[in-house]
Structure formats: C-alpha cells, structure tokens
Write a protein that binds this DNA or RNA. Structure first.
Lengths: 305, 305
DNA sequence: ACAACTTACGGGGGCCGTAACAATT
DNA sequence: AATTGTTACGGCCCCCGTAAGTTGT
C-alpha cells in the first residue's frame, strides 16, 4: 500500500467528491478513481458509496486508520529531519482550552528565564489541532485535557504515536446558574441530571459524548451547542440559564453567576496529559522538566511512549 | 512512501543484514539495497550503518514509527476483511501474565455460559505479543498490565490503534525474602532500595526500566534477569534471596517464603488495561461487557479509542 | 579471497493523463 | 444538458532482477 493512495482516500472522503480531491491533490479525477478502485480491489471491499460520495462502514474504519498512519508518517519524517538538521531551539506549546493551567504558565516562565532569547509561543487550540500539531512537529509539546473515569487514559488515539505523560487530575463540578432549584445541594450525581438541559461545548469542557459514555447510556440531549474555545462564553451561558455544563472544579471556583457543585457519581476526573514529540530540543525538554517539578503535580515520573 | 519499503526496512534492521532480509522477503538483495537507498534519499538521512548493519539514531526513530504503521495497516486490513466476511464467533483472549485475574476468568466463564458451543482460548503471552495479536486480529481482546504513576496511562503505543479501557488498579508491593533486614518494616519507599539487588523480570512484573523512570534516575542495577512469563519462578527467586521484585499486592499476598511490604513512595499502581479490536463479534463484546460488570471493577464507562 | 553491499543496465508492470463512455440529477 | 465517476488506451517512470563493481574483514 502506498501512502499516497491513503492520502487520496482521506481527501476524497473529506471532500465527498472525486473531482474536488483530484483538484486538491493535483491529479486528474481519473487517477483518483483508479486509485480508489485499486484500493477497493486490494482490500476486497467497497469503501465509498458513489453519488453522493460517502464512506461505507468499511470505509469509515479504514479512514480512521489511514488518518493515523498518515499522521504518523508525517511525524516520522519530521523527527528524522529534525535529527539531521537541528534548527535553533524554539518552544511552541499547544493546549486545549482547559489544559493550560497555572503550572503550565509557570513552566513557560521557567523555560524563558533559563533561555533568555528563546522564541516561545503558546497556542490554545482544539484538541485535534493540538494532536496534529504535535504529531507534525509544529508544536513541541501539547497539553490535552479530558473527562474520564479515574482509571482510564485519555482517548486520544491520534497522539498514541508520541510520548505521553499524565500531568494532573482535578475534580469535576456541575455548573448551575445561581437560582437553579438544585443549587442548594451539596453534591450531584450525574444520574439525576440525565434529563436536564445541557450545553454541549466539546472543545472546552467534557463533551456530552463523554458524559454519555461515563453514565452508561443516558440521554443528555444538548439544549445548546457552543463551539469554539472560549470558557467565559460557556460560563456566561450557564449563568444565563441556558443549560448545565461539566467543568473542572478549579475553573468553576472563581466564576460569577454560577454555582459549582461537586460531581460525586460516577467517579470522573478532569485529567490533563502532556504529549510531546519524541525528539525534543533543550527548550522543549526544559518545559517538560519544569512541569514535572511544578508544585501540586500529581504525576511522578513514568512516561509512556 | 510504500509500506513495502517500510517492511523491508524493519526486516533489514531485524536481520541486521540486507541479504538475509532479501531472502526473507523473497527479493534480491540488490532490490533491498535499492529500497533502502531510496528511503534514505527521500528522508535525506542515513538510516543504517553498513557492515555491520545497525540502525542510526534516525533509523531507530523511523523503525519505531514504521513498526507501528505496519501494525496499523495490518489492523485496518483485518477490520475491513472482518466486516465484509464475518466468520463464526470465537473468543481469543490474550493477556500478559499478571493481567489475567479472577475477574477476567469470570468474564470468560460468563461468555462461555452464554454461548455454549463457543470456541474459546486464553493465551498468556508477553506484552508485545499481546499487542501484536490484538492488532492483527488473532486475538479479540487483550489484557495488559503495567506499573505506572497513578495518573499516567500505560505506555503501549503499539496498541494506540485500538479501543482502550482502564480495567483495574492495584497497589504495589516490594517482595522480600522472609529473613531480609527490612522485612520488619511496615512500608517501603523505593528510594531506600536503589542500591538493593533487584531481579529484572520485565515480562512478569514492573521492569527495572519502569522503576527507574518512576524513581527519577535511580540506578537499580539488576542482580539477576528472569525471562519468561512464570510468576512462581520469580517468587521462588525472591524467596531464595536472589533479589527483590515489585509485584502487585494481590499477587504477593498468598505467596510463601516472601514478605510483601507496601510501596508507599512514589505513588505507583499496578494497572490492567483492556484492549480490543474496534470490530468485535458477539463473543468479544460479551467478554468486554462481562468484565465491565464484574465486581470490584474500578472502571466506569469511558472508553478511549 | 570471500562475503556483503552498491551500482549499472535492461525489461516489465504500474500509474498517470487524455479521451471516450456511462450514469445520475 | 451538465456534472461526475468509470473505462480504455498509450506513454512514461519506477522497480525489480541480472550482473558487474567495490569495500571491509
């Protein structure tokens, strides 16, 4: 299998069009058609419905793997290139919105004070953008957060290719507007809130999919979707009574107009994990080390790969 | 990049010989030489030292990625094939030695009683064999254990391609022979044992590499290496005073001739994770569900991918 | 001198582009 | 009728095998 074929496949799937994909890849659409046909023949299964162009079940599975393979090949290329031509040390940190906490900021501070002239940047991005950035080498380190059961890893398969370290865990809270009927309680169980109106803000907090998975099979109908990476907007919406949201307790604490009640069941946590390219320059290594040393870090040593 | 080139590369690296690899791949060694040369040209870096044939630093990095890519491509092929031609339901469970506990056994029992004629097998294998088996579809589900800091995921990058769920965590203990000078203590800190003689049994317990990573940079010189998957042999060696070992507390409890002291610092746990192919037949799904329902399961719902 | 990897060269297969064809809207 | 995907065909490139060359032991 040639990776170009996989790239063609994912492009076609994304464009939902052979001709558009051909255009994007600087090929003729005949070539694209032939590549897809050859791929289907080799795997012995139909991968795409035509007209409209939509992946079949087998196609969806392949798509998932193909994306990861392409990402990993990119990562390999980047690593090898970096080894043979180490550029000037820079620090590019990518983070999903709630993953960049005070300790991360301290780590940036520590690195910048140790490498005075260092060109450093911090990007707050969607989770997938962080994963892709780290994989392709645009980012030196990535911080991703998620809502998981205490014993589960974050499910970022895209970054399975990279070094992974657990960094911190934090309790979760349900954010309610101040006047909410349940606002007087001491704690909440997710089960009691299945039918409540929820705000689905997958980029910021735990997505409703996560909650559904954690709760078993609850409904959790979204009352309002909130796209983008802005926490304040989400809190404002909660405060305005537009729905509930699950957010880390530390984030909820200072917020106005909302009440944050501990979520006691199921046992979920907000976890931050650190991902980084397997080849780091001194600045990147310094960041990781600084985060390691930072106070209140629950983590201790063991690094995945 | 063609995956055949990657396969050639890993084969050459494994054989440490162009000609042996050519033989294994049914190619001429000239073809192998050309493929490697082309790969090196494309990546712009030397990947292998010649005579003797040993990977360069860049080669080692690429090797790592290449293996994962090939595994994933295999997995994709298996999944697509399984979708288009679902065979008879079978259950093949693979497990690293200490990952198969009473709850796993119960889950097997549950599945077999629900599907009476089911052809079921359990394989206890090395961790890498489990990972490969699940990825290539020979195993429906895999159970892997490891020693990690409480917040870290197990670092099995090879199986990042699969569904992952945390299953259970268990405290760790240091196993000492009964007469050992420290045997009277209530608990131990890893730091105090840096210079003790350790038995390195990476297939069974936490490998010394794991301990080193967890402790920071301690020495942990291996006094004796114990290969293979047999727990009793390891315990017997400890009892005979050949060295110490870190093992899960539950395993240590019943053992004769050894004293198991809780390991209180650093905060490490023995974690078992469940991996499975993303496409499961009823038997496989039944196993996962049964393990979910099993008593004392710490896990709750959230599944990675 | 031998074993092992590299380079040179010729043949064949595969892949892309052009172009004609088919199918769906 | 127009747009989009498929099939047919021809040329080119790439890749493999044979065979000669080079290098390290």
């Amino acid at each position: 299998v040639d990776s170009r074929v996989l790239r063609t496949f994912v492009t076609v799937a994304r464009c939902a069009s052979f001709s558009a994909a051909a255009d994007e890849l600087s090929l003729t659409q005949a070539a694209v058609s032939q590549q897809i046909a050859a791929l289907e023949a080799e795997l012995g299964a139909s991968l795409l419905h035509r007209r409209p162009v939509v992946p079949t079940e087998a196609g969806r599975r392949l798509l998932h793997h193909a994306r990861a393979v392409l990402l990993r090949l990119d990562a390999a290329r980047v690593e090898v290139a970096r080894l043979s031509a180490p550029g000037p040390a820079t620090l590019a940190v990518g983070s999903s919105p709630l993953a960049f906490d005070a300790r991360a900021a301290e780590a940036v501070q520590a690195v910048r004070s140790r490498f005075p002239g260092l060109e450093a940047s911090v990007y707050v991005l969607s989770r997938s953008a962080v994963a892709e950035g780290v994989a392709t080498g645009r980012l030196d380190v990535g911080l991703l957060d998620g809502v998981v059961a205490t014993t589960d890893p974050l499910g970022h398969a895209d970054v399975g290719l990279l070094a992974v370290e657990g960094v911190a865990e934090d309790d979760l809270a349900v954010a309610l507007p101040v006047g909410h009927p349940l606002a007087g309680r001491a704690a909440l169980r997710l089960h009691d809130l299945v039918d409540a109106p929820w705000i689905d803000a997958p980029d910021v907090a735990g997505s409703l999919d996560d909650l559904r998975a954690a709760a078993g099979s609850g409904a959790f109908a979204p009352s309002l979707r909130c796209d983008g990476c802005d926490v304040r907007a989400l809190l404002a919406l909660v405060s305005a009574g537009q729905g509930l949201a699950v957010i880390p307790a530390s984030v909820a604490r200072g917020a106005e107009g909302i009440v944050a009640l501990p979520l006691v069941s199921p046992r979920l946590v907000h976890r931050i994990e650190l991902f980084h390219a397997t080849v780091l320059d001194e600045a990147g290594a310094g960041f990781v080390a600084a985060l390691d040393r930072a106070p209140q870090a629950l983590r201790s040593g063991q690094s995945g790969r």
